[in-house]
Write a protein that binds this DNA or RNA. Sequence first.
DNA 1: GCGACAG
DNA 2: ATCTTGTCGC
Length: 233
Amino acid sequence: MVAMLMNIHDTINSIESITPKEAIILQNELRGSVIARDDFGDIKLIGGVDVGVKEGIAVAAVVMFEYPSLTLVETATATRKAVFPYVPGLLAFREIPVILDALVKLSRRPDIIIVDGHGYSHPRRFGLACHLGVTLDIPAIACGKSRLVGEYREPSLGRGSVEDLVEGGEVIGKILRTRDNVKPVFISVGHRVSLDTAVRIALESARGKRLPEPVGMAHKAASNRTKDGFRKR
DNA sequence: GCGACAG
DNA sequence: ATCTTGTCGC
């Protein structure tokens, strides 16, 4: 595998120096590497990933929680100029570089990660969570906050309600209500995990909040670094 | 041409 | 995502 043979520096460079047209071709090449079934060992550490952008500077935060106790054990952040533009469907090329910067700072590798964004529920079935999961060959779950593609019916209002996210007759993800009467989230496969398992872990991790704990925490961490530049270490 | 469009 | 005050609800 190409990504496996490259160090992180080259990996980042090849991702952010690509053109949008080439990016689409690359997604179509890499989509075949996604493993959409459960393929992982015991989960003891679960990571949450999120990125914020402020005045052209991207801030990534990766948080690690013990699983299933959901105790916060480690946080890492990184800052990097956002070079690739925001283009719906090509978010990975804008966010993966800074995410990798943050990930290498962790003392341990998470056994699975939950990513803020889509995975299989993507125009080419290769969203950010898939790209990150395949690049690191790590189990990944996608948890988006709004629709990118597909149609669905509104889940009933109780926590745990689920509906299919469908496109072209295929179930590409699930709409999951993680809290009573609160806007549902969009769950899909990232890598090495089945859709049902992704939904189960996402719901388990969302305790009292709309977003799964790891993602919510990563969002906060990135947001704090995003506010008023990045001077406060 | 028009509308849709993760973060 | 970010720009922004108050406000409704547990």
